Amino acid sequence: MTALPSMTADATPTFPEAARATFAAAYPDRPVTLHHGLVGHALLTLDALATLAERMPAGSVEYNLGKLPLGVRPEDMPANGLTLGETIRTIETNGSWAVLKNVERDPAYAALLDTALSELEPIVAAQTGPMLHREAFIFLSSPSSVTPFHMDPEHNILLQIMGTKTMTVFPARDEELVPAQKSEDFHGGGHRNLEWRDGFKARGTPFPLCPGDAVHVPVKAPHFVENGPAVSVSLSVTWRSERSVAEGELHSFNALLRKRGLPTGAVSERPERQGVRRLVYRIMRKLGA
């Protein structure tokens, strides 16, 4: 059994001991509900987040109208006609969705991320090796907003700070949900949104989230999010691993092979062990192939 990291007597953990034990039993392949202690944190109020957003570079923010169908093309995402600061300060009534990306570039939010992930690092290291490329994202949603069906390349824990939402998570590595060529395009810089079919919904598991709840989402497990009747604020803490990096390399290798009319190879549940194919891909990439 993986040993859980200890906490000092006067420290309030982001993830209490029971949550860390639940995470250890599920990581890296199963989605699971956890509990956290960041509700009411001064850095996660609407005013603090609006101030943060206004000093972030334009490329690190994304926002649009929030009442969207589950399947929507990236080019069809509608703007809301407001500035980002206006969007956050009036999010209760403007029907919008916003994400602040890579907030760990701000020192205060970097410390928040490091504290949270340090509690989980021994568990992660025992299963998938060192935590790589740690990042944090903050999501703000108006009542009844929808985040369309999509996938992400990182190991992810979404912490609910304010309001309620339901995240419906689907199995990773299901090629009916995510065809092989979509994975190849995605790892080549393609958009995260996926094609939605009504028949998919029964294959997902809904995770209702209230303030103090969190959900672990495995790498590239498709999901969509439906916001509740109040403003929602969520913090997403993410990291990469040798496993997630290996999966990206192998899909990128398949993309190169497919372009040349050559047979592609299967990406296993433990892609970090497919060392020969990863080495060939790295050599081809270095040669400019």
Rank of each mutant, 00 (worst) to 15 (best):
L158V: 14
L43H: 06
S236Y: 00
A19L: 10
R260S: 11
L132D: 10
S268W: 11
N80K: 04
G59V: 10
E226P: 01
G81H: 03
L68D: 09
P74K: 13
Y281W: 15
L43R: 03
Q181I: 12
G37W: 06
W239D: 00
F200W: 09
S241T: 11
P229V: 03
D174N: 15
I91V: 15
H223P: 07
G40P: 08
S60V: 00
H36A: 07
A110N: 11
F15V: 01
N102W: 07
E104C: 06
E86K: 06
A79N: 09
I91H: 06
A3D: 15
A136N: 05
D174W: 03
S244P: 11
R197S: 07
A9D: 13
F23C: 02
S268C: 12
L68E: 07
H155T: 10
V146E: 10
R273G: 07
L132W: 12
Y281A: 05
I88A: 03
D29Q: 10
V280R: 03
G189I: 00
E242L: 12
I157S: 05
G163W: 00
V217W: 00
T115P: 03
A116P: 03
K165F: 02
V169H: 01
H35P: 01
T87S: 11
V280D: 05
M1D: 08
T264K: 07
A214D: 03
V231G: 00
A3R: 14
T147D: 07
M7A: 15
F139S: 04
S268P: 13
E86C: 04
V178H: 01
G199E: 12
G288F: 05
A172K: 06
P153R: 08
L250Y: 04
K67R: 15
G71K: 09
A50T: 04
K259M: 03
R243D: 12
A108N: 13
P31V: 05
H187A: 05
W196S: 01
L4N: 06
L140Q: 07
R89S: 13
S244I: 04
H41T: 03
A18Q: 13
R273P: 02
L194A: 08
V276L: 15
H133I: 09
M151E: 09
L4K: 08
A116C: 08
L82I: 00
A58M: 00
I161Y: 07
A125T: 15
S232W: 01
A255C: 11
R197A: 13
A21I: 04
P122K: 02
T12I: 14
Y63I: 05
I88V: 12
I157G: 06
L158N: 08
I283G: 11
Y281Q: 08
G275K: 15
T166V: 12
L132R: 13
E184I: 03
T51P: 03
L100Q: 04
F200M: 11
H251W: 15
E119P: 06
P57L: 00
N193E: 15
R55N: 07
G95R: 01
A98T: 04
Q160Y: 06
M162R: 14
